[in-house]
């Protein structure tokens, strides 16, 4: 059946003034190689751009990469904008340099998972593949 075999569509992006893009490109490639359709936004996106892109592209999930230290505000803003647009069925996850002490609060705010430096790519691919198919 077509529905079951349709590839997952995942937005992978960099938010804010953060030029570290090695990790995010690795993730984008790994997800593509795992059979997903990856929409890569490039650097320096605002939370508003991320959310509008996600809606236009009808993605299943948004993966954000933040190594700038601004993760607390950026992830929360993205979640807030998704809610405001009635699009909070889109899963938000991410990675980068995110201190352990910030993780529980971000998860509490609605970030599904966070992956730090050294995470095997397979773990990330498995997490995305196992996301509940909401549509």
């Amino acid at each position: 059946m077509t529905v079951a075999t349709a590839p997952l569509r995942i937005l992978i992006g960099k938010v804010g003034l953060d030029g570290h893009d090695r990790g995010v490109k690795l993730i984008a490639r790994a997800l593509r190689d795992a059979g997903m359709e990856v929409i890569y936004t490039g650097l320096h996106q605002s939370p508003e751009q991320i959310v509008n892109t996600a809606i236009q592209e009808d993605v299943d999930a948004i993966g954000l990469s933040v190594l700038s230290g601004a993760h607390n505000t950026l992830f929360r803003r993205v979640l807030e904008l998704l809610r405001a647009q009635g699009a909070d069925d889109i899963v938000v996850f991410g990675g980068g340099i995110i201190p352990n002490e910030d993780v529980p609060a971000l998860k509490g705010a609605g970030v599904k998972a966070l992956f730090g430096p050294g995470t095997p790519l397979d773990d990330i691919v498995r997490f995305v593949k196992e996301l509940p198919r909401s549509r």
């Binding site: 059979g35 929409i39 890569y40 751009q49």
Partner: peptide
């Protein structure tokens, strides 16, 4: 793999808002 990297819109992101 059946996967794809959809990168065209990187060049058009200024229109996203």
């Amino acid at each position: 793999t059946g996967g794809a990297l959809l990168g065209d819109r990187i060049r058009m992101q200024r229109h996203t808002l």
